[in-house]
Design a protein around this nucleic acid. Structure first.
Length: 936
RNA sequence: GGGCCCUUAGCUCAGUUGGUUAGAGCACUGCGUUUACACCGCAGGUGUCAUCGGUUCGAGUCCGGUAGGGCCCA
């Protein structure tokens, strides 16, 4: 018969075995019949399926799983669905590279299309990509994301995430699309969703609008070009001068888009010129000189040109000064074919023809050449480095184009809403708390509403159509909307109510909105998607608002904030009670690990090398909000801890005889464990250990309630090592109760009361330690649990201190640290807490070990005789544990001496001739004297 | 330029509301295979708590300045 408990313990291979068992037993399946009070619901971040997961994912998802497992053991039904965010650009870009294709919506669908590549291509240049229809493109997106999702799920399972895998979701699935569209339509009805023709930051590579949250500044080289503007007649008259006005600009290619010059109202150099005019060089357009406080007198010549639109300050000037628009840059980042209004002269039109169709880069070169030829540029360009706006995923500077876009109100233009959203942030429990300032800074700094239109293909379509007027133009002011029960819809193929398909794009008919929503417009609805807002009211009532949103600090301004915006608008509440913010993973040079730096490690390899418990231990040892070093040494410690748990468990079950019974059958093992733990814990040392453990249970529970998994792990781990190194060594002989080495112990046979006390304490402690470690080390603890307990440890109750204190009775360490009840009934009149008692006996054991270590003899060497000098406060504890100490130290005769008394002359012999105490005799340190060693 | 976090042993980090002599693990050195464990055990050394000043009977801890690192936002 094979033993239930292996002779040689190993952590290898536990992952596959237990994942199979958990899946088969439905250990983590969500019971939807529970009520909201019984449920703990977690809004898990759906990872973007854009390639591979990295160590940072493993790190932060472990933090979440520790919470999930803890709450489950606390008796809550944990709602913890995992999702995949497939939307948008990352997937499109990956599909382009992976298959070597690009989307051209004007093409018809090709049945059975076979892409030119299938993952082999490194990166296919745009020119070599095969153009395909939108439907073909979306099919490839779906195909690829399905592959990615399978890899992701395999990794998560291997890591041991306690997810109900029957409840995965995708942000692109039909039901998610329906949720996103329904939320949009409700927002439209309430006026939160609106469209506007406005200057929009535009990525010319992806040809899509970009929202404020997706921007980043990058320092770029640029050059100030000093250009001469000739004065118009009114200016000559006002100043009495024919001299040119010089401006300095980094974007001379936008000269044709110039609508005005601007200087600070207090700038005396330009005050006489306000309201007068100059003519633009090359193009000869007359533009006014205007005052505005945003002009910087100390920058360049103190006067700047306002264009349509060089940067966001131009937009501000345009809006506040009510200037005309003269756009020159198109959606493709090239100069428009037709000259803007204002350029009418023959020379001006000829100059414009020189740059029409060029990229902005080439246009700048050509303009500079022309300016130099005409003598209108003074000096050489002066190079500088300046911040330029980029799309965070893009690699070309953003242009600003004027387009019609959809927006969602997010407090960027409405002070009342802004205030309400700041107040929502104040309600939210940020873990750690200092992360809330990132939210507040962001919300208070918003300058515009949330732009959600994206001119992309793979995403949730904006669910509206527009009537087509008699002149063929769309009537954007009267969008046609579907009914909620018709969702999801695709306006590019579906037909609005009251129209027929042949009325598409014809006068008197309709036209579909072509844009999709940005990723966050869907991702901000993960609570509504997973909780069944649209189609499962019972589930929604049981899970929403949710308890926890775990995420990284980088997406507080996007995912966290936008989710608050949607929930506030739709439900008038926060989407969750707490937000747990994980830190970054830093490489050994303290740089953030990221794919672009090429310093990432593949997570699966890491898990296979060290074991999932080990990697989880590393993650759990880092506090929320704190960056952690990528530290394989820490993983090795985790592995050692997992191994230690297996081996210490083997000892406890062996010494108590439980393994004898458990190897017969699990039922026998369970009965034996019940029998062993029913014995009274009578020995002070045993009571002290359980008292210390009770304190640890309280501390760990309080820490986890406060989302401090690190502290919980630390206190459990510290006591566990003391338990293994000192307590187990001390009680080992007593627990064996004279059994011969290697002999099987009968757990039900009568034994000495001291032995029964040790066995009960060992078993209670093991049971408690396993449950304390279960959230962090799910595999090793489940393995041991299966040796002598029924069911899964991950559905077992979280330990409580009360039963431990009851088992201790009135003995040492029984009093809770909070209550100062005097331990009168204790056999030891010691004021020491359980932990201090344990420490004192551990120090005594160390002193005995040290004398052998100093004498360079094996630890098994007997000590014939020794004096143990003990600090006064610890004497009682050491005396109480004397038989255990003598057994563990193989001591024949031991005298326990109060170290303070030993300082008296004649007691320890360490007296100087003048009667002063010897300076090496420190009465606070335990030590030995008068040692007589035996033969090993 | 604004904000947040960090700086404690060679390394990774603890250090609770200020309170005896600042801790742990790793690494290192020595000893050792004792009826859980060599993926091991035992023992041992290791500090200008970044720096300057302040509050206090008392500061790693509280306050202010400076330097360095990281992140976010302009």
């Amino acid at each position: 018969m094979t033993s239930r408990i292996p002779d040689k313990a190993t952590v290898d291979g536990l992952e596959d075995r237990w994942n199979e068992a958990w899946e088969a037993q439905g250990t983590y399946r969500f019971d939807a019949s529970k009520t909201r009070e019984e449920v703990y619901s977690i809004d898990t971040p759906p990872p973007t399926v854009s390639g591979s997961l990295h160590v940072g994912h493993v790190f932060s998802y472990t933090h979440t799983d520790v919470v999930a497992r803890y709450q489950r053991m606390r008796g809550r039904e944990v709602f913890y669905p995992m999702g995949w965010d497939d939307n948008g650009l990352p997937t499109e870009r990956r599909v382009q590279n992976y298959y070597g294709v690009r989307c051209d919506p004007s093409l018809p669908y090709t049945e059975g299309f076979v892409p030119p590549h299938s993952g082999g291509a490194k990166s296919v240049k745009a020119a070599d990509q095969v153009p395909i229809s939108r439907r073909n493109f979306v099919e490839l997106c779906e195909e690829l994301t399905e592959q990615d999702e399978q890899q992701f799920e395999a990794l998560w399972r291997h890591l041991g995430l306690s997810v109900d895998w029957s409840r995965t979701y995708q942000t692109i699935s039909p039901s998610s699309q329906a949720v996103a569209q329904q939320a949009f339509l409700r927002g439209l009805a309430r006026g939160e969703c609106y469209q506007a023709e406005a200057p929009t930051l535009w990525d010319v590579t992806f040809r899509t609008a970009v929202a404020q949250a997706e921007l980043e500044d990058r320092d770029r080289p640029g050059a100030y070009h000093r250009l001469a503007f000739e004065p118009a007649a009114d200016l000559e008259e006002a100043t009495g001068s024919y001299g040119s006005v010089y401006i300095e600009t980094t974007r001379p290619e936008l000269l044709a888009a110039c609508v005005a010059l601007v200087a600070h109202p207090d700038d005396e150099r330009y005050q006489p010129m306000f309201g007068k005019h100059v003519r633009t060089p090359l193009f000869g357009v007359e533009v006014p000189i205007v005052p505005h406080h945003l002009a910087q007198p100390d920058k360049g010549s103190g006067i700047a040109m306002i264009c349509t639109f060089g940067d966001i300050t131009d937009v501000t000037w345009w809006r506040e000064l009510r200037l005309p628009t003269r756009p020159v840059v198109g959606w493709d980042g090239r100069i428009l074919a037709d000259a803007p209004a204002g350029i009418t002269s023959e020379e001006g039109l000829a100059a414009y023809a020189e740059i029409a169709g060029l990229t902005v880069f080439s246009a700048q070169k050509r303009i500079v050449e022309m300016l130099v030829e005409a003598g209108l540029m003074e000096g050489e360009p002066r190079t500088i480095s300046h911040p330029v706006k980029f799309f965070e995923k893009g690699d070309k500077p953003l242009e600003i184009v004027s387009t019609r876009q959809w927006y969602i109100r997010n407090g960027g233009t409405d002070a009342d809403l802004n205030e309400a959203l700041v107040a929502r942030g104040a309600e939210l429990g940020f873990e750690p708390d200092f992360m809330r300032v990132r939210y507040e800074n962001w919300v208070k700094g918003l300058t515009g509403d949330w732009l959600i239109s994206r001119q992309r293909f793979f995403g949730v379509p904006i669910p509206v159509w527009y009537p087509v007027l008699a002149d063929g133009s769309p009537d954007y002011d009267h969008p046609l909307v579907p009914s909620e029960d018709a969702l999801p819809v695709d306006p590019s193929t579906d037909v609005p109510a009251g129209y027929s398909a042949d009325q598409r794009d014809v006068p008197g008919g309709f036209t579909g909105e072509k844009d999709i929503m940005d990723t966050w417009a869907t991702s901000s609805l993960t609570p509504q998607i997973v909780c069944g807002w649209r189609d499962d009211p019972a589930l929604f009532a049981a899970t929403f608002p949710m308890d926890l949103r775990p995420q990284g600090q980088d997406i507080i301004r996007t995912w966290l904030f936008s989710t608050v915006v949607r929930s506030h608008a739709e439900h008038g509440c926060l989407p969750w009670k707490h937000a747990a913010i994980s830190g970054w993973i830093l490489d050994p040079d303290r740089k953030k690990m990221s794919k672009s730096k090429g310093n990432v490690v593949t997570p699966m390899g890491l898990l296979e090398q060290h074991g999932s418990d080990a990697v989880r231990y590393w993650a759990a040892a880092a506090r929320l909000g704190t960056d952690a070093a990528f530290d394989e040494g820490q993983m090795k410690i985790g592995r050692r801890l997992a191994m230690k748990i297996l081996n210490a468990s083997k000892f406890v079950l062996g010494a108590t005889g439980i393994s004898t019974a458990a190897n017969e059958s699990l039922e026998s093992g369970i009965d034996a464990a019940a029998h062993v733990t029913a014995a009274p814990v009578t020995e002070p040392l045993d009571q002290a250990m359980l008292g210390a453990l009770a304190d640890v249970v309280d501390a760990a529970t309080a820490a986890l309630e406060a989302y401090d998994h690190t502290r919980a792990l630390e206190v459990a781990e510290t006591l566990f090592w003391t338990f293994c190194d000192d307590y187990v060594e001390l009680v080992k002989a007593r627990a064996y109760d004279g059994a011969a080495p290697g002999a099987a112990i009968d757990p039900l046979a009568p034994c000495a009361p001291e032995a029964a006390s040790a066995r009960a304490a060992l078993t209670l402690a093991l049971d408690t330690f396993l449950r304390l470690f279960a959230p962090v080390l799910p595999f090793a603890t489940e393995e041991v649990w299966s040796w002598f307990r029924s069911g899964s440890i991950h559905r077992a109750p979280w330990p409580e201190s009360a039963p431990l204190r009851e088992a201790v009775g009135g003995g040492a360490g029984a009093s809770s640290p909070a209550s100062a009840s005097s331990p009168v009934s204790s056999p030891v009149s010691s004021a020491l807490s359980g932990a201090a008692f344990l420490t004192a006996t551990g120090e005594a054991l160390s002193a005995l070990r040290k004398l052998k270590s100093d004498a360079k003899v094996p630890q098994r060497t007997p000590i014939e005789s020794v004096d143990l000098l003990v600090p006064e406060a610890k004497v009682a504890a050491v005396r109480a544990a004397e038989p255990d100490l003598k057994a563990a130290g193989r001591v024949v005769t031991m005298q326990i001496v109060d170290a303070m008394a030993a300082l008296e002359p004649g007691v320890d012999g360490l007296v100087n001739t003048d009667g002063a105490p010897d300076e090496i005799a420190d009465p606070n340190v335990m030590r030995t004297e008068n040692v007589v060693l035996g033969e090993a």
